[in-house]
């Protein structure tokens, strides 16, 4: 009964959020809040997507940038080749991201801990190198993009992207929440705590890992797809920037990975701090703050913000006693 009521509250919250975002795009004139807000929304979606594999399953993915960049370049290639609309670009990016996730899953099925993490970095660098040598999308120099005209209810492209990214956040959170409450989530948590024991008690660990890789990858690539239109420009070294990886990882771990709300909180907190610091001081300082916060939280508050707020999550997220 409470679960049912929780569900209603959640979807009502989602509806209110989307309506608020939509009306904000209609009322607020100034474009800057959307420009900054887009980045925060992007990080929320990335962090939530990361935590599906990194949080529930305990596989530390350093390759967020690989999926993000693949999303960016799927959109770029498709747009350049066919002029496909944004929705199609995002759907295609999600499909490619899911395929890549499947590949990563297959390749790394037997790798654990640090080996998995290093393999994901390796993948990111290899894909980046391929894109750098891919002339059609501009190679290492990057590519300029002309935004198509904006669609009906919106009066500027940035506002539309802001709304689109808000929808992606809702999709990511919805999926993460579903996984968390379903057999998949419990299976992932079981394999996180003890993979061998989970395997022995009949949890289909390999299948679950593959599913988690695919869903997480599809979401990350989908989030990356609008980035090219947002910047009107794409180049390999910024699309595949390692900062995306450290941000997604840091935001999830700082927020706490036991519940989907953790990455959301972490991303909002760090994302807005970053936006503020990047404007007021410099972008180096904000990476420094990110790194220091990550180390501090990992050392002193292993369960993240939600662990500090609600002690009962400590037990659930704790793994081995």
């Amino acid at each position: 009964m409470t679960k049912h009521r929780n569900s209603i509250a959640f979807w009502a919250g989602v509806a209110i959020f989307l309506v608020a975002v939509l009306s904000m795009t209609q009322i607020v004139r100034n474009e800057y809040p959307f420009f900054a807000g887009y980045v925060i929304l992007q990080f929320i979606a990335l962090a939530v997507a990361w935590s599906i594999l990194g949080g529930y399953a305990g596989y530390v993915n350093f390759g967020t940038n690989a999926f993000f960049g693949v999303g960016v370049y799927t959109a770029v290639a498709l747009f350049k080749a066919t002029g496909a609309p944004l929705v199609v670009q995002i759907a295609a990016a999600a499909a490619v991201g899911m395929t890549l996730g499947f590949g990563v899953g297959l390749l790394t099925l037997r790798m654990r801990g640090i080996f998995f993490s290093i393999a994901t970095i390796a993948l990111a660098i290899i894909i980046e190198t391929f894109v750098m040598n891919w002339r059609f999308v501009g190679g290492a120099a990057g590519i300029q993009l002309q935004r198509p005209p904006v669609m009906a209810p919106f009066d500027s492209y940035v506002k539309m992207l802001f709304f689109v990214q808000a929808v992606l956040v809702v999709i990511a959170v919805g999926i993460a929440r579903y996984i968390q409450n379903s057999r998949i989530g419990r299976g992932l948590q079981a394999l996180r705590d003890d993979e061998l024991a989970a395997e022995c008690t009949g949890v289909p660990t390999l299948k679950l890992k593959l599913v988690a890789c695919m869903i997480s990858g599809a979401l990350m690539s989908a989030v990356g797809a609008p980035a090219a239109m947002y910047l009107q420009y794409a180049d390999p070294s910024s699309a595949f920037n390692l900062t995306y990886s450290v941000s997604a990882l840091a935001m999830s771990l700082i927020g706490g990975t036991a519940h989907w709300i953790g990455p959301v909180l972490g991303a909002i907190l760090l994302g807005s701090t970053q936006q503020f610091l990047a404007v007021t001081i410099s972008s180096e300082i904000n990476v420094l703050v990110l790194g220091i916060m990550l180390v501090l939280f990992v050392v002193a508050a292993p369960k993240g913000i939600i662990g500090l707020l609600r002690p009962r999550y400590r037990l659930r997220a704790g793994g081995k006693p």
């Binding site: 840091a250 771990l253 990110l290 790194g291 990992v298 081995k320």
Partner: peptide, 20 residues
């Protein structure tokens, strides 16, 4: 408990701090 995930994240964070 849980040393794997957090240990890796710890060193990753240290690497980033040094870089910056």
């Amino acid at each position: 408990s849980d040393a794997g995930v957090r240990g890796i994240a710890f060193f990753f964070g240290i690497a980033f701090i040094i870089e910056v």
